[in-house]
Each structure stands twice: as structure tokens, then as C-alpha cells.
Design a protein around this nucleic acid. Sequence first.
DNA 1: CTCAAACATTAGACTATTCATATATTATAT
DNA 2: ATATAATATATGAATAGTCTAATGTTTGAG
Lengths: 109, 109
Amino acid sequence: MKQSIHRYKASLFKSLAHPLRLAILDALREGEKTVTQLQELTGGEQATISQHLAVLRVHHFITFRKEGTLAYYRNEDAEVYIFLDLGRQLYERQLNRHRQEIDAQVMGR
Amino acid sequence: MKQSIHRYKASLFKSLAHPLRLAILDALREGEKTVTQLQELTGGEQATISQHLAVLRVHHFITFRKEGTLAYYRNEDAEVYIFLDLGRQLYERQLNRHRQEIDAQVMGR
DNA sequence: CTCAAACATTAGACTATTCATATATTATAT
DNA sequence: ATATAATATATGAATAGTCTAATGTTTGAG
């Protein structure tokens, strides 16, 4: 049924729809990072980062390996980045459209 | 700053992260639809549909024209569909990975 | 002018997300 | 055995998103 596809797809989008999770994914573009490193790179609290990592793990965007007391997280599917980059194109076009709207309003006065 | 990009991008993803909104966008693939038609196609309540249409409008995914008492909605940026289709590929791969996980567990017993 | 149809908006209840705080857990060092 | 560092998890409060029901608005018909 189409509805269940939409439900699943929506949950996938939802799991990406958070600034900190996007920041984490971006940080992992350049390879493995520990939780502490991600904390420094993104400026989030330890617990908060762990929670967001858990969300990304459940959705198989990332995976990790333990080494001693450290946890090295890494991206699990490079295709996410194609997706995220396309998302970037999308919003850049939308920003332009938005600017044009405002310009039009200003000109119209 | 990167943070504001992540915030904006997250709000964009969030606006797509709802089953009914995805259903609406899918319904609009084949061209203009009135609110009543969208109601029939997606099975949502009138008010609910209108609210979700408003969300999609704010984010410039759709636009509309009025003709008499009818409102004809249509997609505003065809690139959304490239994006949505890529999303589909993403989750299909994840489903497969998930299935493999389960299989591995079953085999391991 | 009045009514009905199509749609939009508002208000409140309900549900889900998020964050911070506190508390586990695990591994290593002493 | 204890202490500490790194990470994870649980809990509750705050916030945001969603739905339903009711009300508004606009248009066209009669």
C-alpha cells in the first residue's frame, strides 16, 4: 500500500530533519569521529549528541566501532550525502525564489 | 555560518516529513488538483489537507491558482521529485540492509 | 439578498520531539 | 579494588507538531 510507503519515507525524512543531526552527518563526511570530537565540532552536549547518534543509528545512516572506551562513528551509506547535497540545491533554489518575491514586492511599491 | 544552513535545511526536511504531505506531493505529480480532489486521493479531512497545503506552500514546494470557488494546487519545483525519488532509493537500500540483519540473526541461532 | 459550496483559519486537546540532568555502563589506569 | 574517562540510557520538563471541531471568507447561483 502507498500509505505505508509514505509513512516509512516520512520517518526517514524526520530522522534527518534536525540541525544537530545534519551537523553530525556533515562532520562524518571526512571520516570516523569519536563522540567527544563530534561534541567539539558541533557544539552539542554529550548526552544530546549520544541521543542524536542513536536516532541516526536506528535509521542506518551511521554505524560505529568501539575501541577501548572510545566509540568511533562513521557514515554507513554514502548515498545519504548525494541526498543531502541535492537537498542543498533544493533550498538554494527556494531561497532565490524567495528573494525574487521580496524584490518584486519592493519594486511594486 | 554553517549552523544556520543546518537549521534551514532541517526545516526543509521537516516540511517533507509527514505521510500526508508526501501523499499530496505524489498526487500532484500528475498535474493540478483541487483541494477536494486531494481529499479524495489521500483520504484526509478537509481542514487537515488545507493545513498541510499551507505548510508546503510556505516552503515553496507548491503553489496554486483560484478559479471561482476552487483552488487548483500544483507543484512549484519539479526538482522536489528528483529528491523524493532519491529518498525512495535511500530507504529501499535501508530496508534491504535491515532484512539482511534479521536474516543474519535467524541464521546465527 | 440569501444560501450553499469550496476552501482557509483558529483554538484547544493530544501526541511526539527535544533537551538537560542525573544515573548507568564499560574499559583502562593505578 | 578504586578511580576516572568516554559513552549510553532513563526521566521529566519544555516545546513543537498534528488533529478535530468550529468558525470565517469568498464566490457563484437563484
